[in-house]
Design a protein around this nucleic acid. Structure first.
Lengths: 191, 191
DNA sequence: AAGTTACTAGACCGGTCGTCATAGTTCGCG
DNA sequence: CGCGAACTATGACGACCGGTCTAGTAACTT
Protein backbone atom coordinates (compact mmCIF):
# COMPACT_ATOMS: atom_id res chain seq x y z
CA UNK A 1 0.00 0.00 0.00
CA UNK A 2 2.97 2.28 0.42
CA UNK A 3 3.46 4.65 -2.47
CA UNK A 4 6.51 4.59 -4.67
CA UNK A 5 6.40 8.10 -6.04
CA UNK A 6 5.45 11.52 -4.84
CA UNK A 7 3.44 12.37 -7.96
CA UNK A 8 0.17 12.46 -6.12
CA UNK A 9 1.49 14.80 -3.46
CA UNK A 10 3.12 17.08 -5.98
CA UNK A 11 -0.15 17.34 -7.86
CA UNK A 12 -2.00 18.27 -4.71
CA UNK A 13 0.59 20.86 -3.91
CA UNK A 14 0.50 22.62 -7.24
CA UNK A 15 -3.26 22.32 -7.34
CA UNK A 16 -3.57 24.02 -3.96
CA UNK A 17 -1.33 26.81 -5.17
CA UNK A 18 -3.13 27.38 -8.46
CA UNK A 19 -6.66 27.12 -7.13
CA UNK A 20 -5.67 29.53 -4.40
CA UNK A 21 -4.52 32.23 -6.78
CA UNK A 22 -6.77 31.62 -9.79
CA UNK A 23 -9.88 29.83 -8.67
CA UNK A 24 -11.38 26.65 -10.02
CA UNK A 25 -12.63 27.40 -13.50
CA UNK A 26 -9.74 29.65 -14.40
CA UNK A 27 -7.28 26.86 -13.69
CA UNK A 28 -6.90 24.45 -16.58
CA UNK A 29 -5.77 20.88 -16.30
CA UNK A 30 -2.94 21.44 -18.72
CA UNK A 31 -1.57 24.32 -16.71
CA UNK A 32 -1.94 22.33 -13.55
CA UNK A 33 -0.16 19.30 -14.96
CA UNK A 34 2.65 21.11 -16.65
CA UNK A 35 3.26 23.20 -13.54
CA UNK A 36 3.53 20.03 -11.51
CA UNK A 37 5.53 18.19 -14.13
CA UNK A 38 2.99 15.39 -14.25
CA UNK A 39 1.53 13.64 -17.27
CA UNK A 40 -2.15 13.83 -17.93
CA UNK A 41 -3.00 10.22 -17.42
CA UNK A 42 -1.64 10.22 -13.90
CA UNK A 43 -4.38 12.58 -12.80
CA UNK A 44 -7.09 10.05 -13.45
CA UNK A 45 -5.09 7.31 -11.90
CA UNK A 46 -4.57 9.12 -8.62
CA UNK A 47 -7.86 11.02 -8.71
CA UNK A 48 -10.55 8.96 -10.43
CA UNK A 49 -12.97 11.77 -9.71
CA UNK A 50 -10.95 14.05 -11.97
CA UNK A 51 -10.50 17.76 -11.49
CA UNK A 52 -13.29 17.97 -8.98
CA UNK A 53 -11.79 15.40 -6.64
CA UNK A 54 -8.33 16.91 -7.00
CA UNK A 55 -9.74 20.30 -6.06
CA UNK A 56 -11.65 18.97 -3.07
CA UNK A 57 -8.54 17.29 -1.67
CA UNK A 58 -6.33 20.27 -2.39
CA UNK A 59 -8.75 22.55 -0.60
CA UNK A 60 -8.77 20.26 2.41
CA UNK A 61 -5.00 20.57 2.55
CA UNK A 62 -5.06 24.34 2.19
CA UNK A 63 -7.70 24.56 4.87
CA UNK A 64 -5.66 22.39 7.18
CA UNK A 65 -2.52 24.42 6.67
CA UNK A 66 -4.17 27.67 7.61
CA UNK A 67 -5.89 25.95 10.49
CA UNK A 68 -2.50 25.08 11.93
CA UNK A 69 -1.22 28.62 11.51
CA UNK A 70 -4.31 29.95 13.25
CA UNK A 71 -4.06 27.58 16.14
CA UNK A 72 -0.41 28.31 16.70
CA UNK A 73 -0.92 32.06 16.54
CA UNK A 74 -3.80 31.97 18.97
CA UNK A 75 -1.91 29.77 21.41
CA UNK A 76 1.25 31.82 21.31
CA UNK A 77 -0.14 35.35 21.46
CA UNK A 78 -1.10 37.39 24.48
CA UNK A 79 -4.88 36.96 24.39
CA UNK A 80 -7.30 36.56 21.48
CA UNK A 81 -7.48 40.27 20.66
CA UNK A 82 -3.75 40.56 20.13
CA UNK A 83 -3.67 37.21 18.34
CA UNK A 84 -6.17 38.29 15.75
CA UNK A 85 -4.29 41.48 15.11
CA UNK A 86 -1.07 39.50 14.60
CA UNK A 87 -2.85 37.09 12.37
CA UNK A 88 -4.37 39.73 10.15
CA UNK A 89 -0.97 41.37 9.90
CA UNK A 90 0.38 38.10 8.64
CA UNK A 91 -2.42 37.77 6.07
CA UNK A 92 -1.84 41.32 4.89
CA UNK A 93 1.83 40.64 4.44
CA UNK A 94 1.23 37.52 2.39
CA UNK A 95 -1.29 39.33 0.24
CA UNK A 96 0.90 42.34 -0.46
CA UNK A 97 4.01 40.24 -1.03
CA UNK A 98 2.18 38.27 -3.74
CA UNK A 99 1.03 41.42 -5.56
CA UNK A 100 -2.44 40.87 -4.11
CA UNK A 101 -2.84 37.41 -5.54
CA UNK A 102 -2.81 35.19 -2.46
CA UNK A 103 -5.86 36.06 -0.46
CA UNK A 104 -7.94 33.43 1.27
CA UNK A 105 -7.06 30.00 -0.13
CA UNK A 106 -10.68 28.87 -0.06
CA UNK A 107 -12.91 31.81 -0.86
CA UNK A 108 -12.21 32.11 -4.58
CA UNK A 109 -13.02 28.48 -5.20
CA UNK A 110 -15.86 28.54 -2.69
CA UNK A 111 -17.59 31.15 -4.81
CA UNK A 112 -16.69 30.10 -8.33
CA UNK A 113 -17.27 26.37 -7.88
CA UNK A 114 -20.21 26.64 -5.50
CA UNK A 115 -22.32 24.32 -7.61
CA UNK A 116 -20.03 21.37 -7.03
CA UNK A 117 -21.20 19.71 -3.86
CA UNK A 118 -17.88 18.05 -2.92
CA UNK A 119 -16.01 21.30 -3.36
CA UNK A 120 -18.58 23.33 -1.50
CA UNK A 121 -18.37 20.88 1.36
CA UNK A 122 -14.58 20.99 1.46
CA UNK A 123 -14.70 24.77 1.72
CA UNK A 124 -17.40 24.71 4.37
CA UNK A 125 -15.30 22.35 6.43
CA UNK A 126 -12.24 24.55 6.10
CA UNK A 127 -14.16 27.61 7.21
CA UNK A 128 -15.71 25.61 10.03
CA UNK A 129 -12.35 24.45 11.31
CA UNK A 130 -11.01 27.99 11.33
CA UNK A 131 -14.04 29.27 13.15
CA UNK A 132 -13.67 26.54 15.73
CA UNK A 133 -10.15 27.73 16.47
CA UNK A 134 -11.40 31.26 17.12
CA UNK A 135 -14.24 29.94 19.20
CA UNK A 136 -11.93 27.89 21.39
CA UNK A 137 -9.66 30.83 21.93
CA UNK A 138 -12.58 33.01 22.96
CA UNK A 139 -14.08 30.52 25.37
CA UNK A 140 -10.58 29.90 26.68
CA UNK A 141 -10.38 33.61 27.48
CA UNK A 142 -13.55 33.38 29.52
CA UNK A 143 -16.34 34.20 27.08
CA UNK A 144 -19.55 32.19 27.37
CA UNK A 145 -19.89 29.39 24.84
CA UNK A 146 -22.95 30.73 23.07
CA UNK A 147 -21.50 34.20 22.73
CA UNK A 148 -18.13 32.85 21.63
CA UNK A 149 -19.75 31.06 18.73
CA UNK A 150 -21.39 34.19 17.42
CA UNK A 151 -18.31 36.27 17.94
CA UNK A 152 -16.16 33.73 16.12
CA UNK A 153 -18.55 33.90 13.18
CA UNK A 154 -18.22 37.67 13.10
CA UNK A 155 -14.44 37.46 13.30
CA UNK A 156 -14.22 35.02 10.42
CA UNK A 157 -16.67 36.97 8.28
CA UNK A 158 -14.90 40.25 8.87
CA UNK A 159 -11.51 38.78 8.03
CA UNK A 160 -12.80 37.12 4.88
CA UNK A 161 -14.51 40.29 3.75
CA UNK A 162 -11.43 42.36 4.46
CA UNK A 163 -9.32 39.98 2.39
CA UNK A 164 -11.76 40.30 -0.49
CA UNK A 165 -11.75 44.09 -0.33
CA UNK A 166 -8.00 44.34 0.08
CA UNK A 167 -7.39 42.05 -2.86
CA UNK A 168 -9.82 43.92 -5.06
CA UNK A 169 -8.51 47.35 -4.11
CA UNK A 170 -4.85 46.43 -4.08
CA UNK A 171 -4.64 48.03 -0.67
CA UNK A 172 -4.32 46.47 2.76
CA UNK A 173 -6.26 49.25 4.52
CA UNK A 174 -9.42 47.16 4.93
CA UNK A 175 -7.41 44.53 6.78
CA UNK A 176 -5.98 47.10 9.15
CA UNK A 177 -9.40 48.62 9.82
CA UNK A 178 -10.91 45.23 10.57
CA UNK A 179 -7.99 44.23 12.78
CA UNK A 180 -8.40 47.31 14.94
CA UNK A 181 -12.14 46.85 15.14
CA UNK A 182 -11.95 43.21 16.12
CA UNK A 183 -9.33 43.83 18.76
CA UNK A 184 -11.45 46.50 20.40
CA UNK A 185 -14.57 44.38 20.18
CA UNK A 186 -12.92 41.36 21.74
CA UNK A 187 -11.21 43.26 24.49
CA UNK A 188 -14.42 45.07 25.31
CA UNK A 189 -16.03 41.68 25.71
CA UNK A 190 -13.44 40.42 28.16
CA UNK A 191 -14.22 42.59 31.13
CA UNK B 1 -26.28 56.71 -33.89
CA UNK B 2 -29.64 55.64 -32.55
CA UNK B 3 -29.93 51.96 -32.00
CA UNK B 4 -32.44 49.74 -33.74
CA UNK B 5 -32.41 46.83 -31.32
CA UNK B 6 -32.17 46.26 -27.62
CA UNK B 7 -29.65 43.49 -28.09
CA UNK B 8 -26.93 45.33 -26.25
CA UNK B 9 -29.04 45.91 -23.18
CA UNK B 10 -30.32 42.37 -23.11
CA UNK B 11 -26.78 41.08 -23.29
CA UNK B 12 -25.75 43.23 -20.34
CA UNK B 13 -28.72 42.05 -18.38
CA UNK B 14 -28.13 38.37 -18.86
CA UNK B 15 -24.41 38.88 -18.38
CA UNK B 16 -25.00 40.57 -15.03
CA UNK B 17 -27.22 37.68 -13.98
CA UNK B 18 -24.85 34.92 -15.06
CA UNK B 19 -21.67 36.49 -13.76
CA UNK B 20 -23.46 37.07 -10.49
CA UNK B 21 -24.36 33.44 -9.99
CA UNK B 22 -21.50 31.67 -11.73
CA UNK B 23 -18.52 33.97 -11.86
CA UNK B 24 -16.44 34.98 -14.83
CA UNK B 25 -14.58 31.92 -16.00
CA UNK B 26 -17.45 29.55 -15.35
CA UNK B 27 -19.70 31.54 -17.66
CA UNK B 28 -19.23 30.72 -21.32
CA UNK B 29 -20.10 33.01 -24.18
CA UNK B 30 -22.37 30.42 -25.70
CA UNK B 31 -24.41 30.12 -22.55
CA UNK B 32 -24.52 33.85 -22.21
CA UNK B 33 -25.69 34.43 -25.74
CA UNK B 34 -28.24 31.67 -25.86
CA UNK B 35 -29.66 32.70 -22.50
CA UNK B 36 -30.12 36.22 -23.77
CA UNK B 37 -31.37 35.12 -27.17
CA UNK B 38 -28.63 37.17 -28.73
CA UNK B 39 -26.74 36.33 -31.90
CA UNK B 40 -23.11 35.49 -31.48
CA UNK B 41 -21.67 37.96 -33.91
CA UNK B 42 -23.21 40.89 -32.12
CA UNK B 43 -20.91 40.60 -29.17
CA UNK B 44 -17.93 42.17 -30.87
CA UNK B 45 -20.03 44.81 -32.49
CA UNK B 46 -21.47 46.02 -29.22
CA UNK B 47 -18.43 45.16 -27.11
CA UNK B 48 -15.23 45.42 -29.14
CA UNK B 49 -13.31 44.54 -26.00
CA UNK B 50 -14.97 41.11 -25.98
CA UNK B 51 -15.97 39.19 -22.91
CA UNK B 52 -13.83 41.33 -20.67
CA UNK B 53 -15.54 44.55 -21.64
CA UNK B 54 -18.96 42.96 -21.41
CA UNK B 55 -18.16 41.80 -17.91
CA UNK B 56 -16.82 45.15 -16.79
CA UNK B 57 -19.96 46.94 -17.96
CA UNK B 58 -22.27 44.33 -16.51
CA UNK B 59 -20.53 44.63 -13.16
CA UNK B 60 -20.91 48.38 -13.22
CA UNK B 61 -24.64 47.90 -13.69
CA UNK B 62 -24.89 45.34 -10.90
CA UNK B 63 -22.91 47.61 -8.63
CA UNK B 64 -25.15 50.54 -9.42
CA UNK B 65 -28.31 48.57 -8.79
CA UNK B 66 -27.24 47.50 -5.32
CA UNK B 67 -25.99 51.00 -4.65
CA UNK B 68 -29.50 52.31 -5.21
CA UNK B 69 -31.03 49.71 -2.93
CA UNK B 70 -28.52 50.61 -0.24
CA UNK B 71 -29.12 54.30 -0.46
CA UNK B 72 -32.85 53.91 -0.36
CA UNK B 73 -32.72 51.57 2.62
CA UNK B 74 -30.41 53.84 4.55
CA UNK B 75 -32.54 56.89 3.85
CA UNK B 76 -35.80 55.24 4.74
CA UNK B 77 -34.86 53.37 7.90
CA UNK B 78 -34.75 54.60 11.45
CA UNK B 79 -31.02 55.21 11.83
CA UNK B 80 -28.00 53.42 10.35
CA UNK B 81 -28.06 50.54 12.84
CA UNK B 82 -31.59 49.54 11.96
CA UNK B 83 -30.95 50.15 8.28
CA UNK B 84 -28.07 47.73 8.17
CA UNK B 85 -30.10 45.09 9.90
CA UNK B 86 -32.93 45.54 7.39
CA UNK B 87 -30.48 45.44 4.56
CA UNK B 88 -28.83 42.23 5.69
CA UNK B 89 -32.24 40.70 6.13
CA UNK B 90 -32.96 41.54 2.52
CA UNK B 91 -29.68 40.00 1.37
CA UNK B 92 -30.36 36.84 3.37
CA UNK B 93 -33.77 36.52 1.81
CA UNK B 94 -32.44 36.86 -1.72
CA UNK B 95 -29.73 34.34 -1.01
CA UNK B 96 -32.01 31.73 0.51
CA UNK B 97 -34.70 32.23 -2.14
CA UNK B 98 -32.17 31.46 -4.86
CA UNK B 99 -30.99 28.26 -3.21
CA UNK B 100 -27.86 30.06 -2.08
CA UNK B 101 -26.81 31.09 -5.54
CA UNK B 102 -27.25 34.85 -5.51
CA UNK B 103 -24.79 36.24 -3.03
CA UNK B 104 -22.85 39.41 -3.67
CA UNK B 105 -23.06 40.30 -7.37
CA UNK B 106 -19.44 41.41 -7.47
CA UNK B 107 -17.41 39.24 -5.15
CA UNK B 108 -17.36 36.06 -7.21
CA UNK B 109 -16.05 37.85 -10.24
CA UNK B 110 -13.81 40.09 -8.16
CA UNK B 111 -11.96 37.00 -6.98
CA UNK B 112 -12.00 34.78 -10.03
CA UNK B 113 -11.13 37.46 -12.58
CA UNK B 114 -8.80 39.46 -10.40
CA UNK B 115 -6.06 39.43 -12.99
CA UNK B 116 -8.08 41.45 -15.46
CA UNK B 117 -7.44 45.07 -14.68
CA UNK B 118 -10.71 46.48 -16.14
CA UNK B 119 -12.76 43.95 -14.23
CA UNK B 120 -10.86 44.48 -11.02
CA UNK B 121 -11.42 48.20 -11.32
CA UNK B 122 -15.14 47.81 -11.97
CA UNK B 123 -15.47 45.73 -8.83
CA UNK B 124 -13.39 48.14 -6.77
CA UNK B 125 -15.62 50.99 -7.89
CA UNK B 126 -18.75 49.07 -6.99
CA UNK B 127 -17.43 48.28 -3.53
CA UNK B 128 -16.30 51.88 -3.15
CA UNK B 129 -19.72 53.24 -4.02
CA UNK B 130 -21.39 50.96 -1.49
CA UNK B 131 -18.95 51.95 1.18
CA UNK B 132 -19.56 55.62 0.45
CA UNK B 133 -23.27 55.11 1.09
CA UNK B 134 -22.55 53.60 4.51
CA UNK B 135 -20.09 56.35 5.26
CA UNK B 136 -22.57 59.08 4.42
CA UNK B 137 -25.21 57.49 6.58
CA UNK B 138 -22.80 57.27 9.51
CA UNK B 139 -21.60 60.85 9.25
CA UNK B 140 -25.21 61.89 8.79
CA UNK B 141 -25.96 60.25 12.13
CA UNK B 142 -23.27 62.31 13.78
CA UNK B 143 -20.15 60.18 13.61
CA UNK B 144 -16.87 61.95 12.87
CA UNK B 145 -15.75 61.70 9.26
CA UNK B 146 -12.54 59.82 9.94
CA UNK B 147 -14.20 57.31 12.17
CA UNK B 148 -17.11 56.88 9.77
CA UNK B 149 -14.74 55.86 7.00
CA UNK B 150 -13.19 53.12 9.07
CA UNK B 151 -16.51 51.93 10.36
CA UNK B 152 -17.96 51.80 6.86
CA UNK B 153 -15.04 49.62 5.79
CA UNK B 154 -15.74 47.25 8.64
CA UNK B 155 -19.44 47.13 7.80
CA UNK B 156 -18.80 46.33 4.17
CA UNK B 157 -16.17 43.71 4.98
CA UNK B 158 -18.36 42.00 7.54
CA UNK B 159 -21.34 41.88 5.20
CA UNK B 160 -19.26 40.53 2.32
CA UNK B 161 -17.69 37.89 4.51
CA UNK B 162 -21.04 36.89 5.93
CA UNK B 163 -22.43 36.47 2.41
CA UNK B 164 -19.49 34.27 1.51
CA UNK B 165 -19.91 32.09 4.58
CA UNK B 166 -23.68 31.86 4.23
CA UNK B 167 -23.42 30.87 0.60
CA UNK B 168 -20.77 28.25 1.30
CA UNK B 169 -22.60 26.78 4.28
CA UNK B 170 -26.07 26.99 2.82
CA UNK B 171 -27.14 28.69 6.03
CA UNK B 172 -28.02 32.31 6.73
CA UNK B 173 -26.79 32.21 10.33
CA UNK B 174 -23.59 34.15 9.57
CA UNK B 175 -25.66 36.98 8.14
CA UNK B 176 -27.79 37.13 11.26
CA UNK B 177 -24.78 37.11 13.55
CA UNK B 178 -23.11 39.90 11.63
CA UNK B 179 -26.30 41.95 11.49
CA UNK B 180 -26.67 41.82 15.26
CA UNK B 181 -23.04 42.66 15.81
CA UNK B 182 -23.04 45.63 13.45
CA UNK B 183 -26.20 47.06 14.93
CA UNK B 184 -24.76 46.95 18.42
CA UNK B 185 -21.46 48.38 17.27
CA UNK B 186 -23.07 51.29 15.44
CA UNK B 187 -25.52 52.11 18.18
CA UNK B 188 -22.73 52.00 20.73
CA UNK B 189 -20.92 54.55 18.65
CA UNK B 190 -23.83 56.95 18.52
CA UNK B 191 -23.94 58.00 22.15
C1' DA C 1 -29.18 54.33 -56.63
C1' DA C 2 -25.35 54.76 -54.08
C1' DG C 3 -23.44 55.29 -49.68
C1' DT C 4 -23.30 54.75 -44.87
C1' DT C 5 -24.38 52.81 -40.72
C1' DA C 6 -26.29 48.97 -37.76
C1' DC C 7 -26.15 44.52 -37.07
C1' DT C 8 -25.43 39.24 -37.65
C1' DA C 9 -23.97 34.45 -39.13
C1' DG C 10 -20.86 31.22 -38.91
C1' DA C 11 -15.98 29.58 -39.64
C1' DC C 12 -11.84 29.35 -37.04
C1' DC C 13 -8.21 27.52 -34.08
C1' DG C 14 -6.66 26.71 -29.83
C1' DG C 15 -7.68 24.82 -25.63
C1' DT C 16 -11.07 22.10 -22.47
C1' DC C 17 -11.64 17.76 -19.73
C1' DG C 18 -11.73 13.09 -19.89
C1' DT C 19 -10.57 8.08 -21.89
C1' DC C 20 -7.86 4.50 -23.25
C1' DA C 21 -4.47 1.10 -24.81
C1' DT C 22 -0.08 0.29 -23.61
C1' DA C 23 4.31 0.34 -21.10
C1' DG C 24 7.09 0.11 -17.06
C1' DT C 25 7.91 -1.25 -12.08
C1' DT C 26 7.52 -3.81 -7.85
C1' DC C 27 6.16 -7.64 -5.20
C1' DG C 28 4.42 -12.34 -3.67
C1' DC C 29 5.07 -16.96 -4.25
C1' DG C 30 6.67 -21.36 -6.05
C1' DC D 1 16.04 -17.13 -8.36
C1' DG D 2 12.24 -16.58 -11.79
C1' DC D 3 7.72 -15.87 -13.12
C1' DG D 4 3.33 -13.77 -13.25
C1' DA D 5 0.05 -10.72 -11.05
C1' DA D 6 -0.87 -6.30 -9.38
C1' DC D 7 0.31 -1.72 -9.12
C1' DT D 8 1.77 2.55 -11.24
C1' DA D 9 2.58 5.62 -15.03
C1' DT D 10 2.08 7.49 -19.67
C1' DG D 11 0.79 10.54 -23.61
C1' DA D 12 -1.87 10.22 -27.86
C1' DC D 13 -6.57 10.77 -28.93
C1' DG D 14 -11.36 12.70 -29.29
C1' DA D 15 -15.48 15.17 -28.67
C1' DC D 16 -16.53 19.41 -27.42
C1' DC D 17 -16.47 24.25 -26.14
C1' DG D 18 -13.72 28.61 -25.55
C1' DG D 19 -13.33 33.47 -27.36
C1' DT D 20 -12.36 35.95 -31.66
C1' DC D 21 -12.90 37.83 -36.14
C1' DT D 22 -14.02 38.32 -41.01
C1' DA D 23 -17.18 38.63 -44.45
C1' DG D 24 -21.60 39.43 -45.14
C1' DT D 25 -26.84 41.11 -44.89
C1' DA D 26 -30.29 44.45 -43.64
C1' DA D 27 -31.84 49.07 -42.81
C1' DC D 28 -31.71 53.87 -43.10
C1' DT D 29 -29.98 58.44 -45.64
C1' DT D 30 -29.34 61.44 -49.25
Amino acid sequence: MSRRTDTRDRMLSTAAELFHTQGYHATGLNQLLSAGGAPKGSLYFHFPGGKEQLAAEALAISGGRLHDVLRQTLETADGPGAAIETLIGHLAETLAASEFRRGCPLSTVALDAADSEPIRRACAEGFGSWQAVFEDALTGAGIAARRAGELATVVLAAVEGALLLAKTRHDTAPLRAVAAHLRITIEGELR
